[in-house]
Design a protein around this nucleic acid. Structure first.
Lengths: 204, 204, 204, 204
DNA sequence: GATGAATGAGCCTTCATTCAT
DNA sequence: TATGAATGAAGGCTCATTCAT
């Protein structure tokens, strides 16, 4: 395996992720990856002895990006930089921020969710390097929020899961079934979802 | 293709879904399916000329079950049978009911969500035979609810998506990462989630 | 793996041994074997999942022949059937008999001696199924001889090894370097070799 | 091709012979040779454009050693230096001498016997540079012997072949199947074999 | 002289599928 | 209806070899 900064290596990894996202790991051939990366098929194997290695290293590279991105642009930073704004605004900013990230790294994320179902190593990486970190950041977020607003005494994990559930569903639906979008205005839709999260659907 | 009621056919379909759920469509071999179904490999091809046919007919068979189940035991029925109970209870019943269904047909659902990303036909079946129906039923549900309780004027689709987002995430997490369960009591957890949906997280 | 009597299986095994004898196991491709056997390359793998299996089963099949041949036409039988003849004649008959066998199964023998150097399993088969048996038979042979003629008190193993050494060298040389043959008459050459073995080279 | 005395060249050749002896020419990869020689794989190809060249030059280098060794320490020399000793002793000395040589250059000899079966050039080198010389030397040896002792009028080639047959078998067996050694004392075993060669096995 | 990177050719092997019974 | 046997196409991977430095 060559240095982790090799240009060819990067080309292969990027090509691979595109293909995996499109057809799934198993249905993607090494030839297809090579062709998209514009290298000979063998060259793949110089860099990654096994096809699976390509998947693992792509995921690992994403983890690096993810960690860097989250560290720098973490939820906490968003909260800190917007202390004066109401919670509603902060949650909205978070959704917008994450949605941008999601869009940029969509293929990686798609592949991770796909393949973690079948591949032990991807699953482990996801759980230990991604899920854990997200969980932690959301815990911090809700701690911040609790200091400023009175919120019900609900377990942080459930809070996070519920918020992510709604937000993620919204983003995914916009991505996969754009036809169903009644609101062209994403902004307004976020407002609604955040309001449900904060105040519920009942009209009092 | 043999009659849709053949016993062998059913064995094959069931075996296939198990394998697909475990390893993905592409990574599953016809031999593995045949072995699990305890028939010769060729027999598969008597019933389903192409491997893809197995997937499609399995999904289609599930759609039949799904339609029957939903028709009989639909959200509407739940609502009708529980008119006297508070909304909170009704939503809870829905989650419990759907969770049971999810557990019983988990492999089918997993496979559909997996393969709809890669297979046009599965995607079409999902959107037209499943998503549409679910959407409709939830619309009816929220109409019912609106007649009894005052709820904010939110688009039905967003309501549904938010509810499903939270509920689905809860069920999935319990399924995939049971280790994270702080609440052994699923009942209590549902109560919390339904409360968030109805009243939000803010403590007034 | 199909039944050990399949016709295709036999064709493959025979083709393989020819190729292995000609080029060595490692330098022989499965395609070459398939072509010589006049079957599709994949068919090989239906019968023998791994290329190595072809080698092992070919050797094993030879062992069966060898055992059968030796059991029926054993040295002992030769001795018994020729009790009246002088030892000289008997040893000669043995060489002629073994030479015929060697000629018929030359590719098998060549492959076994070749590959036992690299392959643990071939080596084991050779040592346990062939060498051991040969050793036993020669022991019996020399016991028979000792009953009839006075021979020096030499360890049976050394006797055998020396006899085989001389006889084998003769046969092999005739096979590999026929150009060196000064005696076209194999019969006479055998007489000489047997005489050396019995009486030595010194002229008294 | 670099000079025949280059240090790298020698390292490669020695590594190659070890590998060839262990796994056979065909089953040995250039990478394995390079790794054992502790050079980069490409470096091999600087010195030997084709993999086969490595084999041929290794064999050729051995021929040089062999020629030198035989010229200096030839059978004739042994005979000359031991004129006073009985033939029995001389033959014994020869076996001991050759056995030592065999042990030192075992990998080379193994590879030559292996690959001469498949490779025209190795075969030619063997026949013309080695076998011929051995043949010649043994002719001389038996001429010497004939001058001193009366031996039967047997063709020199057969004499040599029989002697080598017995001696070689003994050495090889000790090498390959040491477990069968009833005599720990190699000296005594040689005595027996030489005696068979000279006087035969019959007890008169 | 030595090497890191890349590759064409081809190998063993797998897989979905067909044929013949 | 079911199956044992055979196969074309292709897949992952290896190997000797070349290119560029």
């Amino acid at each position: 395996m060559e240095s982790r900064t090799s240009k060819t290596r990067k080309k292969i990894l990027e090509a691979a992720i595109e293909e995996f996202a499109q057809k799934g790991f198993s249905a993607t051939t090494t030839l297809e990856i090579a062709q998209r990366a514009q290298v000979a098929e063998v060259t793949l194997f110089r860099h990654f002895p096994k096809k699976k290695d390509i998947l693992h290293f792509a995921v690992l590279d994403f983890v690096d990006v993810f960690t860097g991105n989250f560290a720098f642009n973490s939820l906490k930073v968003i909260v800190d930089h917007n202390k004066h704004k109401p919670i509603k605004e902060i949650l909205k900013l978070i959704i917008l921020d994450r949605r941008e990230f999601l869009q940029e790294y969509f293929p990686y994320i798609k592949v991770i969710f796909q393949e973690m179902q079948f591949d032990e190593e991807v699953r482990t990486i996801y759980l230990e390097k991604i899920a854990k970190q997200v969980s932690l950041l959301f815990s911090e977020l809700f701690s911040e929020i609790k200091e400023r607003e009175k919120i019900k005494n609900i377990d942080s994990f459930i809070l996070m899961r519920s918020f992510i559930g709604m937000a993620f569903m919204m983003i995914m639906q916009r991505y996969f079934i754009p036809s169903e979008n009644k609101f062209e205005d994403f902004d307004k839709e976020i407002d609604i979802v955040v309001d449900i999260f904060l105040n519920g659907i009942l009209d009092k």
